[in-house]
């Protein structure tokens, strides 16, 4: 009985989310669902980058590269296995199964890329780390641009349109649950300790390099998931989708929402995505708007919208007192 309760608690967010998403999926117009998927992808990106930048306090600005690795790997899987129908199963179902495999393989590939980049770079700190992650991000993109199998600069087109609101929404739920449970565990506290004081963390038995690499790998894996979801909506993957501009976009979302705040990242990602979508005409001023936004933010609220707190700690401050250590 106890065991059943534990299992239920573990999977409850997914059980709740699935029918809700299913219902939402049916009721959305096609443009709205396109925007919704965009928001979902950016939420996954922002929350996963927050694991490195916010929880662990390591400033990485190469997130788009891991997104690219996940996207291309998943694209190779879906295009490669498209003709492969699982016997005795309807085509639609086997297509979904292939997509699930593609997402998993994409995440795996991205986490391997995270490991490869993370091991040498995470010995650096602060600005040095930022520059090196930026460099690695560009390297990965340039490699993709020059690889024939990956379609070089034109990329891979004609991907199956697998991503819908349900897939994207489940991706968000998975990412948020990951981040939330991480933050409330002893493993997550090790990451926070690194952010607060690396020397003290090391002296208290926290293997700082090891945990930093692990945080980086997790973050990369979810960036890969976001990339894989995105390209299977727009049915196209090109290297130009994963430039420095994309990385910066995610960094802005994390900083805007507050480094270390999960809900902050979610809100910031949603707001920025909608803003960008409505300002389509001003697309070439995107970076100008972003930098202005960052400058204003740094002047008025240097720690982002919510700082390291969550939305419920900030908004109804007069009603609900926070009870730290208690799982919400």
């Amino acid at each position: 009985m106890e065991r059943a309760r534990l299992v239920l608690r573990s999977v409850a967010p997914f059980l709740v989310a699935l029918p809700v998403l299913w219902f939402v999926q049916g009721s959305l117009a096609s443009y709205t669902s396109f925007v919704a998927i965009n928001i979902a992808v950016n939420v996954i990106l922002a929350v996963s980058l927050n694991v490195v930048n916010g929880f662990t306090g390591q400033f990485s600005i190469g997130h788009a590269a891991f997104m690219a690795v996940g996207a291309y790997t998943a694209a190779l899987v879906t295009t490669g296995l498209e003709s492969l129908a699982i016997p005795g199963v309807p085509a639609a179902v086997s297509g979904q199964a292939v997509f699930l495999v593609a997402l998993a393989v994409g995440m795996l590939a991205a986490s391997v890329a995270g490991l490869v980049v993370g091991i040498p770079t995470l010995r650096l700190r602060g600005d040095y780390l930022a520059i090196v992650t930026l460099g690695f991000g560009e390297i990965i993109r340039v490699i993709i641009e020059n690889t024939r199998v990956l379609g070089q600069a034109t990329g891979i087109s004609g991907l199956p349109a697998c991503t819908n609101v349900v897939w994207a929404g489940m991706g968000v739920v998975l990412t948020v649950v990951m981040a939330r449970r991480l933050l409330q565990s002893t493993q997550g506290r090790a990451l926070l300790a690194i952010r607060e004081d690396e020397v003290a963390a090391e002296a208290m038995g926290v293997d700082t390099v090891g945990w930093k690499v692990r945080a980086f790998v997790i973050s990369a894996a979810f960036a890969g998931l976001a990339g894989a979801l995105l390209v299977h909506k727009i049915q196209l993957v090109t290297p130009r989708m994963f430039t420095f501009v994309k990385s910066m976009e995610v960094v802005v979302m994390v900083v805007l929402g507050g480094m270390g705040s999960i809900t902050g990242s979610i809100v910031a990602a949603a707001v920025l995505t909608i803003a960008l979508e409505t300002l389509q005409a001003a697309d070439q001023y995107r970076m100008v708007i972003f930098s202005m936004l960052l400058i204003v933010l740094m002047l008025t609220r240097p720690s982002g919208l919510f700082g390291t707190r969550e939305i419920w700690d900030v908004l109804p401050r007069w009603r609900r007192r926070r009870a730290p250590g208690e799982a919400p």
Binding site: R189, A190, L192, A193, E196, D197, A200, M204, P324
Partner: peptide, 14 residues
């Protein structure tokens, strides 16, 4: 050198 932004409890838990 404490973990300044964390509670006393979390400092010890780490």
């Amino acid at each position: 050198r404490l973990f300044k932004e964390l509670s006393a409890f979390d400092n010890v838990r780490i």
